[in-house]
Nucleic acid binder design. Structure first.
Lengths: 313, 313
DNA sequence: TTCGTCGATGGAACCGGTTGCAAGGGACCT
DNA sequence: AGGTCCCTTGCAACCGGTTCCATCGACGAA
């Protein structure tokens, strides 16, 4: 395993110069830098992360905290963050934690340079506390004073409702998300508002956990409302609905329009079904970008980014 | 931030002794050890991982390599491995990589102590190569010479087929998994064998990617066979089937039994539907256990564990 | 009583980088 | 020609643990 001293020796410089050359500090003569880089390449030198971390006092590791991996909403966020982290020379580790208790992060906080916090539920205080020890970016939720990035699904759900009403749906159901979900509060308000403006009758069901089983369970209640269109909080709920509706012989979308995500609608060949299209990977990428700026001191905490969410179909 | 010297000072011993006491090396007098541990607790001492890693020459980090996060088969494996890693004082990082090209792991290999490799597809050579640099445990697949743990779904699929045949199904369809999948090969063989013994007619469809959309797409072909029972390779394919069958008015399970996972069957209230029940978390836990033994030198590479898979319903 | 042995402890080197500080050397200015 | 400044470079300390080796004291054996 080649070592910085090996590189330095081959390049005919000292460890210090080699280090500076490889980190692009700019204090090295261009010609020398080239020589060092060439030597490193030739030897296949890879810096020892532990040594660097010890010397620099920071780890280059970012933790992304998600409540669970069993929800396909979170996984693209992780993938996006992962991709961007790699580009930035950072390493991403996934920590599964519901953030329902305080203090669980003290240990983790010492090991990482920053957090990406995905916490749809839970009290503001608890969530904000998790990000107190190290720079943090909150994903898909907003809390005053914390840097965050959200998919603007509230607006999208409003647009969706407006469109459904315009297409002739007079009774619409919104199946709400988990208890205490920040996004659910935003969406409920937006859907209510849009329905009122359009003169459609809106029923709000829930709260429902974002699971397939919850979608199945809520189906009777949805049918009982006599609505012709249903807008579920999450894709998993929508899938449960579609499955249960299938076993009951309800014709989708003729008898009932179910607005799940575009990929599902397309796969099933459902027509005339508008749906919102959240780009989870972009959420993850943006979050990582914001965190990188925070770490570099280019940003102060508190910046809030909002990603537009298109309505398709 | 308290430091090992701080702990040592408070306990009235040297850094060396403090280090030994905290790591339970057994060369410290019991009384001294108690004093050091108490001092560490009182100061809230947390060892600096980088320093430890540098001194010890190993990182305490394990990477779990998965082809994608979008498949709910993998996520419980990660969760299980994560839990067990934490218990063992190891840190788990998730690396998303399809393992379709060689050499992509050299960089990662230098940063971690070992790998958990989840690679359902891809050539044996490529997969084995990924685990060559550091101790590795292959998950849900077997390759000669590599330590591995698999869920014995082959046997379970066989049992399932036998049971379906015994319940009167004379025509059964197996919807195969992705091209090149190791488990698919095992399952196909087992299903074939069981069907032949039971005198049932078996059609094998596929290959199919383990996605919801693939399940939808394959539905016509399944119906065309005239089978009364279908056994899909993956839960996602089963879900796609169920959805598409619903939109076509096929009564499940009266006209066609779809054997997806027990939780789905239970949620939908389907009766008389046997299904296999893979415990992904246990797979992850066992894999991590095996890797820990490998790292400790308690095991030689090559040990192959097989987890029984129950058939429910 | 004395020597050997063994358990407990401390001193110090070391892991592999980063970085503050100082020095060497050339260019430019007076 | 002498002085100053800046660019480039090297030396050495340091990050915070771990571990080899030496030391010391106590205890059992001769």
């Amino acid at each position: 395993m080649p070592d910085l001293s090996d590189v330095a020796a081959v390049a005919g410089v000292s460890k210090a110069t080699a280090s500076r050359a490889l980190n692009g500090s700019g204090l090295v003569a261009a010609e020398t830098a080239v020589r060092v880089v060439a030597a490193a390449a030739r030897l296949g030198y890879v810096p020892n992360r532990a040594a660097r971390e010890l010397a620099r006092g920071r780890s280059g590791i970012i933790a992304i905290v998600v409540p669970t991996l069993d929800n396909t909403f979170f996984t693209p966020i992780i993938a996006g963050a992962q991709a961007r982290a790699e580009e930035a020379g950072l390493q991403l580790t996934v920590a599964v934690h519901p953030l329902d208790s305080a203090g669980a992060f003290d240990r983790l906080a010492r090991q990482v340079d920053g957090f990406l916090v995905v916490a749809p539920r839970g009290s503001d205080t608890l969530v904000a506390g998790s990000g107190a020890a190290k720079p943090a970016v909150l994903v898909d939720r907003e809390i005053d004073g914390m840097t965050s990035v959200v998919a603007d699904t509230a607006t999208a759900f409003g647009t969706l409702t407006t469109r459904l009403a315009a297409e002739g749906h007079e009774r619409i159901v919104y199946v709400g998300g988990p208890e205490g979900s920040w996004q659910d509060r935003q969406r409920t308000a937006a859907v209510h508002d849009a329905a009122r403006r359009a003169g459609a009758e809106l029923t709000v069901l829930g709260p429902c956990p974002a699971t397939f089983a919850a979608g199945v369970e809520v189906t009777s209640a949805v049918l009982d409302t006599g609505a012709t269109a249903v807008v579920p909080y999450a894709t998993s709920i929508g899938l449960g609905l579609l499955l249960a509706l299938g076993t009951r012989g309800v014709d989708v979308p003729r008898d009932l329009v179910v607005s799940t995500e575009p990929t599902v609608i397309e796969a099933l060949g459902l027509e005339h079904t508008p749906a919102i299209d959240v780009d989870g990977e972009e959420l993850g990428r943006t979050a990582m970008d914001l965190l990188a700026r925070l770490l570099d001191g280019q940003d102060e905490p508190g910046r809030q980014a909002r990603l537009p969410v298109p309505v398709r179909g």
